[in-house]
Nucleic acid binder design. Structure first.
Lengths: 201, 201
DNA sequence: GTCCAAATCTTGACACCGTCAAGATATTGT
DNA sequence: ACAATATCTTGACGGTGTCAAGATTTGGAC
């Protein structure tokens, strides 16, 4: 945590950043501890001073991804705190954008690459916090009649699940091109979201 | 394709079956070509006579998974061809059951493990066929007024995405236990699905 | 039936990987 | 100043995907 440099400086963060870059450039398959170490300019087993194993580095990268996702959701949503419908739409679109613009990070966060998430408190915490944020938006929407009355967590899972499912299938190439030729991603996403939303007025 | 045995017998299928077993027992992390070869009783590079690389074996396993998923969907849906609402419900639940009962196969099929799906025609074909089946069910539901009028492919993506997203988040441990304590998986799934369905009558 | 080309499988090697042990080096607290 | 600790290096281990070379089996042409 100190700003002062010793052997390397803040190697722990350097490793995380190197990992994020490699992930973005070469995908999950190209992400190895040894490559991360090399990119940070240290020997192949230097990372073991900061991470007990590869899973732990992956957990740190995933946690960073969640922090970024949370931040982007917050930025998208905050300006419209008095317009629940708009807030939901902007948040939803921000989620989709994040997934598309950070495919591999998104995959590492949500695709079973991290095997025992509950072992990593920071990951659990930011993931819980993100879900709470979604629940809050959903609750406001319900109070404004934009979403139907129901337990807000339940409705939040419907909304989040809807977005998450569609964008996952899209990234996986499971949406046939016969569909993608006729409709834009935006149309698909908002058509689905609108199924959950009560008609205006 | 011949039923006759030569060196091993139908090694290609034996490798796929061995892979499926290892996948179910040890997860994706435990799936290696060498282990698959050993389980099939051949040397470590025998698989290269049938699969150009590991991705290709994974594609074959994924394809097998899709065939099973298609079969289970079909079995669940067929008995109710004159009851669209029931058909949708049974199909949806079958999808969720498949994901829960075959976590790792499901992950290999949908979680970016297979990197260039379009290179594997059999995979593309069964995946397309499965989507078409969903579209058919959706279309019937629309004609019966169970689902709202819209381009059927669009509505199919909404339904499939909804289910896929919820079950993915669940498998990933992203649904907080505070929610899982209060609601069963069945309640969560059908609450979400009901958001998409027009009220009866 | 014989023989040859192709398919199938084995052996051995290579570079890369995650991980660990032993030791070197720098930092921190006393 | 020194001892305890954190950090990093070197070197090793078994496991991995992949390839090349060669052995073995098969199926078809004659």
């Amino acid at each position: 945590m100190s700003l002062k440099k010793y052997h390397h400086g803040d190697l722990k963060n350097a490793l995380i950043q190197a990992g994020i870059k490699i992930l973005a450039k070469e995908g999950i398959g190209g992400l190895s501890l040894r490559k991360v170490a090399q990119k940070a300019g240290v020997s192949h087993s230097a990372p073991y001073a900061h991470f007990p194993d590869k899973q732990s580095l992956i957990a740190a990268i995933s946690t960073e991804g969640f922090k970024q996702l949370y931040a982007e959701l917050d930025i998208a949503v905050s300006p419209y705190s008095n317009n629940p419908r708009r807030q939901l739409a902007e948040g939803a679109w921000a989620y989709v954008q994040f997934a598309i613009n950070n495919t591999d990070t998104f995959n590492i966060m949500f695709s079973g690459v991290l095997e025992k998430e509950k072992d990593y408190p920071a990951f659990v915490e930011i993931s819980r916090k993100t879900f709470e944020r979604v629940v809050d938006v959903v609750r406001v929407c319900q109070e404004a009649g934009v979403l139907r009355p129901a337990p807000p967590e339940m409705m939040a899972i419907s909304v989040w699940g809807q977005l998450h499912g569609i964008v996952s299938l899209m990234l996986e190439g499971q949406i046939p091109h016969t569909v993608l030729d006729r409709f834009s991603v935006r149309e698909i996403v908002f058509f689905a979201l609108n199924q959950l939303i009560s008609p205006p007025q």
